[in-house]
Amino acid sequence: MMEAAKVLDAKGMACPMPVVKTKKAMEEINSGDILEVHATDKGAKSDLTAWAKSGGHELVDQAEEDDVLKFWIKKA
């Protein structure tokens, strides 16, 4: 498991909040660090992927555990 500089709990939040919170959390970590995001909103999957791409961040990995979607995003 990769080391995350920060973990964001966005469980229970509806769109657009998971992406809004992720964006904010990204501003607080350094370039090259990894942010781990937990979300339950199904829409977060495609939106976070598209958002990361548009910001040049790298979606390093993703997983689904007990209905919780997990994302590891490396800051550009």
Partner: peptide
């Protein structure tokens, strides 16, 4: 017109 919300934050 399409402009994803995350580009407008």
């Amino acid at each position: 017109i399409n402009e994803p919300y995350f580009n407008l934050l």
